[in-house]
Design a binder for these strands. Structure first.
Lengths: 335, 335
DNA sequence: CTGAAAGCGCTTACAG
DNA sequence: CTGAAAGCGCTTACAG
């Protein structure tokens, strides 16, 4: 082991000053001759600049913090992969923090992220406490909330139009002739879950229909399965709107495998997200698409824009269509 | 925005030296009185130590690099979440790098990881070039290959016993009376894929059975689906061993939805990994379990052990049982 | 263009 | 226990 190679050693070997080495590697001006000598010596020694030392001076770590709560819901690995690849291409990298639904834990993690001098932070489906918002503002670290909104905060937010999406599901199910419609909601502690539910109930009410039963699925598979069992036993619905696809799969499993019901013959199921699996024939799930590509783009635009000092839109809401597949009865003449 | 708070400002406010502040936050000895004054001042100013500056001196960044190729296969998000939570609990965090199957790209990413002064590197299902191995050794950065082996390298490796697993599948299918057995292999450029295939073919040969067709699925859903179509058309197998669950789902979808075949009535399907979805009733997939919890533990033991200067086992192979479910005919009297 | 020097925000011997 | 000082490996004005 030769230990760490520093710019000083490269300088000695190249017969130039340490600052010359630095200039060559930081892209500052240097004569072709110097650059050549430095590159040569660096290659021989296997030198690469220490990013940490550089960050200390420049004040840019090129680290983006990501706080995420769910990786079992395939929507998030998908988003993570896209975010990571796009950031990588721009010379940034993601430092990942797994959080629970616990606000105190999220605060703790965000603090650690600030300790690492992250240039920016993306929170995926987690809330941020007012205290932390303040700290990030004081430290001048931009934060973008991905797939989650928050009232009265200055943080940038990127979501799909969950209110409209919820409404669309109600329209579709009512048009399909369903009259006993139930709801396994997404966690009502999240804006996303609340908005989908609100839009859904609003449209039902507007058409003088009611929701025959609603249980929170907490975005968890097990809770959603249990919710489906109870809903079927108590309310005998002919359609269920589930707050996301990840839970909808669990609901369909209960309906078909446990209760031997036909979907959509006996019960229609509609989800939310349109994760890749929703299109697989085993589920063939009718669902509202969250355009993850567009959401990722908007997140990056907001984050990198803010890092580079540009003014960015505080709220981006991308629209997502209802994707009609086979898990819910299709209304006659549905366009 | 008050800008960055440094230890110097805390020192001034607390009426102590900057070194005293440092001692309090780095856990070195300090009198109770000093510690109290420092904590007080730090809290008032919202001070937190700059991890980058600390790392520059200690030579420990508390960053673990993770290079991963597939996030659409749920095996990896699962592993990532476990790795991340466990490392978090120990004060480390994961800097994530998405790679393709391309060796040059992996090299490039690993170099960037070294630039960040990562304390250790985990490669999940990607190979490492000899040059990079050398660089990591020179820099004294431990590397653990997760779910991938490599001949003639000094890097630590954690896999399941893929040879034994492949054999087990052949035994099971033969015991079930299958005589036209085909194989959609995992990418043969990976040790994991090769070993599963080798074990499988060895056991077939040992029992004087042959594989009626083998096509590489490249660990990709689309390739696996296409492989299934061609295999069915060309070899009319009555059983297919698929190199991982992620591809097995695609194969089952083709069999059932496109070809209207019954699984396992017409064709038995066996996968590899036992990802959570394999247990869902929609697939109910018979598969060889890769005990991801044990693999993660072994990875962490090897990595943190090496970081702390302990000698660690170069190769860990955990054993995984065949999980018998409903996608493959069960031999009479199978225990 | 280039080198000497200051400094980023810390930790850590070294004296006292 | 505590402070003054050196130094981690860089970048970046500042002179020349």
């Amino acid at each position: 082991m030769k230990g760490k190679i520093t710019s000083l050693q490269v300088a000695a070997r190249a017969g130039v000053s340490q600052s010359a080495v630095s200039r060559v590697f930081s892209g500052a001006s240097a004569s072709a001759a110097t650059a050549e000598k430095v590159r040569q010596a660096a290659a021989e020694l296997g030198y690469r600049p220490n990013v940490l030392a550089r960050s200390l001076i420049t004040g840019r770590s090129r680290i983006i913090g990501l706080v995420v709560a769910y990786l079992d819901n395939p929507f998030y690995p998908d988003a993570l992969e896209r975010l990571s690849r796009a950031l990588q291409a721009r010379g940034y990298h993601i430092l990942i923090f797994m959080a629970g639904n616990d606000a105190a834990e999220v605060d703790q993690l965000m603090n650690e992220l600030l300790d690492y001098q992250a240039d920016g932070i993306i929170t995926a489906s987690v809330g941020v406490s007012p205290g932390l918002v303040q700290r990030c503002e004081a430290a001048n670290i931009p934060v973008v909330m991905f797939n989650r909104g928050q009232e009265g905060t200055s943080l940038a937010q990127v979501t799909s139009d969950n209110l409209a999406g919820g409404r669309r599901v109600a329209e579709f199910l009512l048009a399909g002739g369903h009259r006993r419609i139930a709801h396994v909601s997404g966690w009502q502690g999240s804006s996303t879950g609340r908005d989908r539910t609100t839009g859904f109930l609003q449209e039902l009410a507007r058409q003088n229909a009611e929701c025959v039963g609603q249980i929170d699925g907490m975005y968890r598979r097990d809770d959603a399965a249990e919710a489906a069992r109870r809903l079927m036993a108590q309310a005998a619905p002919d359609a269920i709107f589930v707050g996301n696809d990840h839970m909808a799969f669990a609901v369909m499993d209960v309906l078909r495998a446990e209760l031997a019901l036909d979907v959509p013959g006996d019960v229609s199921v509609v989800g939310y997200d349109d994760v890749p699996m929703a299109g697989w024939p085993a589920y063939d799930l009718t669902t509202v698409r969250q355009p993850v590509g567009q959401m990722v783009e908007a997140t990056l635009d907001a984050l990198l824009g803010a890092i580079e000092g540009r003014t960015v839109p505080p709220v981006t809401r991308v629209d997502g269509p209802l994707i009609v597949r086979g898990s819910a009865r299709v209304p006659e003449g549905w366009q």
